[in-house]
Nucleic acid binder design. Structure first.
Lengths: 194, 194
DNA sequence: CCGAAAAGTTGACCTATGATAATAAATGGA
DNA sequence: TCCATTTATTATCATAGGTCAACTTTTCGG
C-alpha cells in the first residue's frame, strides 16, 4: 500500500523509512460503498480498519430484531469487533459503512507480526487502547448517570463532526433510546432555545 | 517488594529472574482496610492497583449525590481511574476498598519506566487492555439491549465470585438501577424458582 | 448477647421513555 | 423535476423502573 498513507496513520509512532515500508506491505486499501458491511455478526473477525475517509458504525441486532449502535468511526479512527478480533472469534456485531469510505485494513496476522518486530507499533496501539479504555469509562459514567437528554447533549458536544454525518435514528440507537424519544428531546431543546 | 508476588502477577509475561527483580523494585505492597478510598475524585491519579486479596470498587458521585459503580475488582484484577491514570489528571471517580485487601501499587512513573525497558511488560499490559476493551464492548451491548432483570442475571452468571462479596446496593448501582428495583427483581426470580 | 446501625424489602404512587400508528418532511434516483 | 423511499415528527397510550416512606432483617461493635 501507498507509503504516505502508512506514514500518516502511524505518524505518532515515529517510524523510520524502513519501518514504514515494512508496515505498508501489511496494509490494504479498501473502497467501501455506503451500506456495505465490512464485518458481519457470526463471521470470523480477521481485521481491523482505519478510516481514511467516510464514516462507519458498529451495531448488533438483539433477539427482538432491534439494532443497537456501539460505535461510530470517522477519519483517523480505527474500528472492529474487538471481542472477535482480539480472540479470532466470530463477530458479535456488524460493521457498516454509512458513507462511501476509504479504509485501510490490517489483518490480525499482520498485526501480530508487526508487534513482534516493531515495538514502536505495539506502543502506538497500547496508547490507542488506553484512550479507548478511558473513553469507555466515561461513556459508562454517562450511561449510568445521565438522562436521555443529557446523553444527547453530551454526544452532540463531544462528537459534533459525527453528528453531522449520521442519521438521527443511528444516534438514538447509540444513546440507547428510540428515535421517537430523540425526536422529542430535540424538540424540547429547540423550543428552549427559541 | 517480595519477588514471588511480582512473579505471580506477571506470570504470563514470562519474565526472567533478572527482570522480576527489577520489576519488584517498582511495586509496593499496600494493606487497605474496608471503607478506605485509595483514589479520590478530584485528586491526581498516580497509580494503578493489583488486587492480591480482597475486593474494591470504583464509583463516582453525580450532581444529585448519587453513587454509580463502574467496576468491581477482586483477586487478580487491576483497578484505577483510567482517564486520570493514563493522562496524569485528577480522578473523576473514587476507588474504595469494600473488604480488607492487600494491594500491589504501581505508579505511572514506574510503569512508564518499565515499559521502555521491558517490552514484555508492555505486551503484557497491551493484552490486558485488549481484554478490557472486549469486556467494555460486551457491557455496552448489555446496557443498550438488556432489561434490568437480564442485566442482573448476566451479572450473577458472569461474576459469581464478585456477587458473593458485594452488597446488593452496590450491584444495583453497577447495573444502573435502584436498590429497590433490584430487590423486586430478586423477588421475581426467587418466586419463579420456587 | 444486645442494641444500634446498615442492608434489604415492600407498597403506593409517579415519570421518563417505549410502542404503535399516522403523518410530514427530506432525500435521491430516473 | 418528480415521485418513491427514507427519515423525522407527533400524538396517544402503556410500562419499566424511579421515588418516597415505612418496615423487616441482618450485621457487627461493645
Amino acid at each position: 500500500m501507498d507509503k504516505s498513507l502508512a506514514y500518516a496513520i502511524f505518524r505518532e509512532a515515529d517510524l523510520s523509512e524502513q519501518e514504514v515500508n515494512e508496515v505498508s506491505n501489511h496494509l490494504t486499501k479498501v473502497n467501501c460503498k455506503k451500506g456495505e458491511l465490512v464485518i458481519q455478526q457470526g463471521e470470523l473477525v480477521s481485521c481491523k480498519y482505519y478510516i481514511h475517509s467516510g464514516c462507519l458504525r458498529s451495531f448488533f441486532i438483539d433477539e427482538q430484531g432491534k439494532e443497537h449502535t456501539l460505535q461510530f468511526a470517522i477519519k483517523g479512527w480505527w474500528i472492529s469487533d474487538y471481542p472477535g478480533y482480539f480472540q479470532s472469534k466470530p463477530a458479535i456485531m456488524n460493521i457498516e459503512c454509512i458513507q462511501d469510505s476509504i479504509l485501510i485494513k490490517m489483518t490480525k496476522t499482520s498485526r501480530d507480526h508487526l508487534f513482534s518486530n516493531f515495538p514502536k507499533l505495539e506502543s502506538f496501539f497500547r496508547l490507542k487502547f488506553e484512550n479507548t479504555i478511558a473513553s469507555f469509562q466515561k461513556r459508562t459514567i454517562a450511561s449510568l448517570s445521565y438522562t436521555a437528554k443529557e446523553k444527547y447533549i453530551q454526544f452532540v458536544n463531544t462528537y459534533a463532526e459525527i453528528e453531522q454525518n449520521v442519521k438521527n435514528y443511528h444516534i438514538a440507537s447509540y444513546l440507547g433510546i428510540t428515535k421517537e424519544s430523540l425526536s422529542r428531546i430535540r424538540r424540547d431543546i429547540a423550543q428552549k432555545d427559541a
